[in-house]
Design a protein around this nucleic acid. Structure first.
Lengths: 248, 248
DNA sequence: CGCCTGCTTGATAGGATTCAATATAAGTGG
DNA sequence: CCACTTATATTGAATCCTATCAAGCAGGCG
């Protein structure tokens, strides 16, 4: 995988748009694990794109607790909101050594001036919104066992799309504390739930490697439906055409 | 308030864009309370904008439970995702008699072809995303008392922006069941928490009218910071200009 | 008036937290 | 390379928040 960001867009953008994005994301900088890529208020005004590695978004709560609200995988934008509005509303930190492309403000302006790219960015945002909705629904209605299973399903699915799953196995460099912060449960409880899932052979773990013997079974258990991740760009009509019958 | 949708955009869009949106949302249809405005899969391909009334987004979970993931207030879009991708991922239902503007596909195409409007839609989406992130963080980390308080703070704040708060009092036509579905707690528990908040004089209720004697106090208690709702369009630079110093 | 929906209250049960202690893994520096 | 230090993982016990079940109450509506 050369440029996961541009590749994600597939052929939904024009050749010129693709070239521009390739150019803007050519230069990447390495970021070590557990390093802040985006800080809530300060930090660089650039737009950051994760090219390799892994990160998550989190929000500080009073009392020093953290809430993890989503994961950033190769090809994902880190801080579109901050680039557009000047305020991210959350931080992004790596969990693994990563490569990040920085698009400076003028480059960002250049890309957003292209309608095709702007629309693609909107769709990225919609996907993330769908993710958040899914997490929220899960958090509110499901038991912790299913929630953890759901998280694993989502990560497996997305990592798979990023080509990071080999033989049904993928690396998950998260601590149990962090899993807990993602699900709203304590690290102690994560540990117990994890053991239960292992006991039922829903998952197997070797260090930081996770193996899911029967993804379909885990997804059934987690009530996971990947539809919310499939907001594919090519599912978008060029622009809704007026040949559809207009209604009253 | 004539057209809450267009008014929300303020002077961040051009006069022509404003005229177009006014024209597209001129004709509205009444929708009774507890009526579906958006169904997950089927339904009209139009984009719906709530002009008056109130609605919420929900997702059906297995077992017949519902998860409410957000509220739609006057001026808000109901189904931008569905208009763009063909799939909403959730339903929208009114809680009060409402007026809804329907923008048919060709009208939607027309508006999205204007860069200024497209950018405004992106910002709407970002605001909603910020909301979801806030809910998610709250759901995961806070106790039900604070969560309920937080929900009330958000609704007060947004209803206030929509001019629906008079003397610190506003109408909240929600059942306790629905509040529970918004917070991931049972209706029975909502009732008890509500009583506790009343007991501390955090809120007062007369039927469906909610009065918050001291908003600042409730917000402190709920750890509510309205910043996430303030993604004002005018906070956006015309487009990031290149007169900022580019960094390495 | 009777019915239905929503609200209220009590009692019980269970999931998850916290506290605490130990084990294990992972670094670090000598 | 090993001893030391720290972070992470694991296990147990007590506590607490919240769900569930059940029953009674209130108000609106045909």
């Amino acid at each position: 995988v050369q440029n996961p960001f541009v590749e994600k867009l597939g052929d939904s953008i024009s050749r010129e748009d693709r070239e521009l994005l390739l150019r803007l994301t050519r230069r990447t900088v390495p970021v070590e694990a557990r390093q802040e890529v985006v800080r809530d208020r300060d930090g660089s005004p650039s737009l950051h794109v994760l090219m390799t590695g892994m990160a998550y978004r989190y929000k500080m709560m009073t009392g020093g607790r953290r809430a993890i609200t989503g994961y950033v995988l190769p090809g994902d934008l880190c801080d579109l909101t901050r680039a557009l509005t000047g305020n991210a509303g959350h931080c992004v930190v790596t969990v693994a050594p990563s490569m990040v492309a920085e698009i400076n403000p003028s480059g960002f302006a250049e890309m957003m001036a292209r309608p095709g790219i702007a629309r693609a960015m909107l769709l990225f945002t919609l996907t993330e919104k769908a993710c958040l909705r899914e997490w929220l629904a899960n958090m509110g209605q499901e038991l912790s066992e299913q929630r953890l299973a759901h998280l694993l399903c989502e990560l497996r699915h997305r990592l798979n799309a990023a080509g990071q799953v080999r033989n049904g196995e993928f690396l998950l460099p998260l601590t149990q504390e962090e899993m807990g912060e993602s699900l709203g449960i304590s690290a102690v409880h994560v540990n117990r739930v994890l053991q239960k899932l292992k006991g039922d052979d829903m998952i197997r773990m070797r260090g930081r490697a996770v193996l899911i013997p029967d993804p379909a079974r885990l997804e059934r258990f987690a009530e996971f439906d990947s539809a919310y991740l499939e907001i594919r760009l090519n599912a978008v009509p060029d622009l809704p055409r007026s040949d559809r019958k207009p209604e009253i």
